[in-house]
Design a protein around this nucleic acid. Structure first.
Lengths: 239, 239
DNA sequence: CCGAGCAAATTTGTATACATATGGAAAACC
DNA sequence: GGTTTTCCATATGTATACAAATTTGCTCGG
């Protein structure tokens, strides 16, 4: 996966920004081993930029929590032990619960309601037939992201949204990873979405919070199941 | 308080680190108006360093949420409308609630228990007499911080601690600001501490979470009261 | 008088040279 | 032989020159 394309080919505002995205996806896709040091000069060669934007990107990724930093000793790829991933889910659970509660307290705008209803409808359609094919998974993932993001926005709290975003940065805890789950889990969780939506529309803050907390918590649970059964290999090989 | 001392006089690892601290305290103490742009060159002169560490510091403070950043247009001092401060409290409320729950689930280490008991005892002593004098406030503030930080640590979740720390960065939402509160509030909140401690020691996760949530939530409430009253004063005294 | 458009000045972004700190290997010493 | 010390290679921190972008203010045309 080493395409070695010059970063500044993409006209994404500044080189620093581009480098941030490049490095982030490289780290998340596992191109660097956990614990590995990221030296600046090799990165400049790989990305064909100078050290300045590289350093800016490293600093940014460190503050996102993806890298560790020690003064005068540079940056290393953070490793996320299972305990950290679980921790991220626990935090996300209460944060998204709060988001649902706030959304229920404030009420939805017309626009938000439409988006949520559409994602529910789309999900219904996708799940109406038999089991999801592998190709359907990305589609459902998009629906899932849309549902959750709309609620984050409806909560109307900048800090809250920012923090949820931070949680999603933690590898494997992103909702994109519904891919790894069983069909039954997906259906159950889509059902959760319906109930959460009802609670928000019905202005039941407490119920919305509890449902959302349990919803995200259940993702954690099945993630742990999925990990302990199949990905044992992965965990042990990275150690 | 413009003492204009060269930043690198303090031997705090690197210049960037020193500049971060200088700028942070400058922003928090209100030396820059909310919305004001922070140009790099003037800061270099003020701090007697080059643009490089200044830029690093600005980026760091922006990711802490203290500054806004727009590519090619630089950094501005974020303003925190009351809604933002309240939002920070709501988030902190659920996060500290989670921390208390986790601490209750895991149980306390001997060391942590001792620290918590000491902060409770110190608080009892401080509050045993009559009303707190102004000089006592900082002492109680330290006790308060110690109590909460110990619980954060006892929760054993790096991400959680990191996020709570982010909440505390938001101006006015820091526990240092017990200063602004009434005597009765302080006593009530110290009582909360006792109950929270009992719940954690007694391994009652759910109770610990609820108590802590309400505890932090009550700080929010009296902060709002305090603010609206001082604002009243400002209005009547034509500030 | 007002607005569009251009040009200069200011400001941020990037590259690079130099300074300083770290880590390790070789040499000196016990 | 093992430990300590010194020195050098390497990597990060800082300063600064240059490039690109934005802002400002002016001119010109309507």
């Amino acid at each position: 996966m080493d395409q070695r394309s010059p970063v500044h080919a993409t006209h994404l505002t500044t080189r620093s920004q581009s480098v941030i995205e490049s490095l982030r996806s490289a780290v998340l896709s596992g191109e660097f081993a956990p614990g590995e040091r990221l030296h600046e000069v090799p990165l400049t060669q790989r990305l064909t930029v100078s050290r300045t934007p590289v350093r800016a990107a490293l600093q940014a990724l460190a503050s996102e929590g993806l890298l560790d930093y020690a003064p005068n000793r540079g940056y290393t790829v953070r490793q996320f032990p299972l305990s950290e991933v679980i921790g991220a889910y626990e935090v996300r659970s209460v944060l998204e619960g709060l988001a649902a509660r706030l959304a229920a307290e404030r009420g939805l705008t017309e626009a938000d309601r439409v988006v949520l209803e559409k994602s529910l409808q789309d999900g219904d359609n996708l799940l109406s037939g038999r089991a999801l094919s592998q190709q359907d998974r990305p589609s459902y993932s998009a629906i899932n992201v849309s549902f959750h993001e709309t609620i984050h926005a409806a909560a109307g709290s900048r800090i809250l949204g920012q923090m949820i975003q931070l949680c999603l940065q933690v590898p494997i805890s992103s909702p994109r990873n519904v891919v790894a789950f069983e069909d039954r889990d997906v259906r159950r969780r889509h059902d959760d979405h319906h109930r959460i939506f009802e609670a928000i529309v019905g202005r039941e803050p407490w119920r919305a919070e509890m449902l959302m907390r349990d919803h995200v918590g259940s993702v954690k649970a099945s993630l742990i199941r999925s990990l302990s059964s199949t990905i044992d290999v992965h965990l042990t090989s990275q150690r």
